[in-house]
Design a protein around this nucleic acid. Structure first.
Lengths: 199, 199
DNA sequence: CGTTTAATCACCATTAATAGGGAGGAAAAA
DNA sequence: TTTTTCCTCCCTATTAATGGTGATTAAACG
């Protein structure tokens, strides 16, 4: 088993999670060097300096930055990209990662999973995530809030036909037809926050 | 400022979160003694021994155990009940707690919030939640999955009229008419799990 | 300077959902 | 035992959403 120090970039907004991860990994018998980062660019800079083997990322931090993330992956194929999740995320987003680790797994399990990740034999299926346009997101937000097409039209000061057009495009792009599916899509993609509803 | 050791019971399934919290609190300048627990009973046992001042709880651990939780609160009025959240929770569930802390807050902020919590001047509003009937929940689950009334009827082997009736009652009871609202209601109340969608 | 994308608007036909109105039976609570 | 709740079913209108096809304009990309 590889006993070298592994350098890991961590993109995670919660200090608690970062420190917990650090603790858990330090007990694993392998040495890790964790670097806390604030964005993808920082990870890319670290990667450019070499010796970075893993990037552990909270997927919320790359949301709506798919292209950026994909290009980072392309530019640094030696890195294993790990999603550390403690929330609901869209499957398409998670599929961009080489590995998904859940925060509720036991410490040993997490350490084991990270230990065993090597930068070989990783191949990901880069699904191009079709982005919604600004206007489509406007409409989606209102759909999710339960507004009718008419209400959405009034709200955005456009014709109901336009709203319907946008809806069609949203359905086509996402492959989701039901309002509930769109709601879940919107929650998963942080287009809306569920807290807004629990007012 | 109080410089005594504070005993805190922590009900949190994620080891990472527990250890991160422990780290963050240890840097606060006040001494805390964290006891990791697996369920409410354990917290009550600790409370019975006295000297327990705070309980930090992941609300998912008391979901569907509202009565148990309320009785624990009643039995141990000296304890401050804190929700530590890193997920979406129903506002009514969170309102059972004396304080809600978000995991994405900075370490200093979290430590500060916990330091400043005293077991005085805490009062909560215990809201009774109107329950949906079994059958209504069956229907709601299918609504949220995006099924049409016809599909729901076929699925449950009842007439479409019955489905519509149930929908009427659900709307009346919850005050929610839109599919998206119901979806969020169902997610918040764990009637459905969002993971089921990300198949 | 074309090409593409986004945003806007339109019509038509079909299907689905909502908002009212009831009604009967079974089971549980008062 | 009366009352209430739940589950089941039905009807009539009205409103909303979907699917398809198309068109115009403006901005952005190359």
């Amino acid at each position: 088993m590889n006993k070298q120090i592994k350098n890991i970039a961590v993109l995670e907004p919660s200090q608690i999670v970062f420190e917990g991860l650090s603790n858990v990994l330090s007990k694993s018998g392998q040495q890790f060097h964790l670097l806390r980062t604030d964005d993808l660019n920082e990870i890319q800079n670290l990667a450019a300096l070499g010796k970075l083997e893993l990037a552990v990322i909270n997927p919320s931090q790359i949301q709506n930055k798919n292209k950026e993330f994909l290009s980072a992956k392309k530019n640094h194929p030696g890195i294993v990209w790990v999603a550390l999740i403690y929330n609901f995320f869209d499957q398409q987003l998670l599929s961009l990662f080489d590995k998904v680790i859940n925060i509720t797994d036991s410490g040993e399990s997490i350490a084991e999973q990270i230990k065993n990740l090597s930068n070989s034999e990783i191949h990901s299926n880069d699904v191009e995530h079709e982005q919604l346009s600004e206007r489509e997101i406007d409409v989606l937000k209102l759909i999710v809030k339960g507004f009718s097409n008419k209400e959405i039209a009034d709200n955005l000061n456009i014709s109901i036909h336009t709203v319907i057009s946008h809806r069609k495009n949203i359905s086509q792009k996402t492959g989701i037809k039901s309002q509930s599916g769109l709601t879940i899509y919107a929650i998963s993609n942080k287009i809306i926050l569920i807290e807004d509803f629990a007012k």
